[in-house]
């Protein structure tokens, strides 16, 4: 037997085991001084530990513990406010059922709407069938007409500018920059004059466009006839 094996058996003996190899232990201890010393230390320690009397608590410790436990339990929340640590089978079933019911209720409320969940409809004002507006005055009508004519003149002038820039862009370069901003007409006569000027410009532009077209057309037609003669 080696010293390591001896120590293993010694530990088992300290665990309270009855060793079959007790003779081998004695034989090794007789031959090895260190192991014999270790065995005697183990025996002394074991005897001492076995004979040791338990440490007794002070007599009033029980009362002090109970006072503190009672105070602690009073300070804590009542049982009905605490989450149960362990629910029984019925408890768990009840929890699941309550959860399922709440989910179902939420789904139904979302699909169909519950009367107490619906938002109140806005109050509709009764429509007025007859509007009671004051009769238009003469001055107001004239003023509205003046504004309409003035805006028509402005619009036609703008359209004319666009048209001119398309038909003869070289001729009208810088027109937009050089032209003074138009002011709204101050009276019916002025508005009429503006409209006439605008229409006159449009007419002259149209006339020039037609002249340009016919000139180009006649030149092209003459060129074709000359080609046919050559062929």
């Amino acid at each position: 037997m080696k010293c390591h094996d001896f120590q293993e058996l010694l530990q088992r003996r300290l665990d309270g085991e009855q060793l079959d190899k007790d003779w081998a232990v004695r034989e090794h201890a007789a031959a090895c001084l260190d192991c014999r010393s270790l065995q005697q230390a183990a025996d002394s320690m074991l005897d001492q530990l076995r004979s040791q009397s338990p440490t007794m608590p002070p007599l009033d410790l029980t009362r002090r513990i109970l006072v503190r436990v009672e105070a602690d339990q009073k300070n804590r929340l009542p049982r009905r406010f605490r989450a149960p640590a362990r629910l029984g089978r019925l408890g768990r079933l009840g929890t699941y059922l309550a959860l399922a019911a709440s989910v179902l209720l939420a789904v139904l409320a979302g699909m169909y709407g519950l009367p107490w969940l619906r938002a109140p409809a806005p109050k509709q004002e009764p429509q007025q069938l007859v509007k009671t507006e004051p009769p238009p005055s003469m001055e107001k009508s004239v003023e509205e007409a003046r504004q309409a004519v003035a805006s028509l003149a402005d619009k036609s002038t703008d359209q004319m500018r666009v048209l001119l820039s398309v038909t003869n862009p070289m001729e009208n370069v810088g027109m937009a920059e050089s032209a003074p901003p138009l002011e709204p007409a101050a009276s019916l006569r002025q508005a009429g004059q503006g409209a006439a000027e605008g229409l006159q410009t449009v007419a002259s532009s149209t006339q020039r466009a037609f002249a340009y077209f016919f000139r180009e057309f006649t030149q092209a037609d003459a060129g074709k006839q000359k080609d046919s003669r050559v062929h």
């Binding site: 001084l33 014999r36 270790l38 230390a41």
Partner: peptide
């Protein structure tokens, strides 16, 4: 046990 040996608490027979 080693401490007991070191401190001479064990009489080695």
């Amino acid at each position: 046990m080693a401490r007991l040996q070191r401190r001479g608490m064990v009489e080695v027979q």
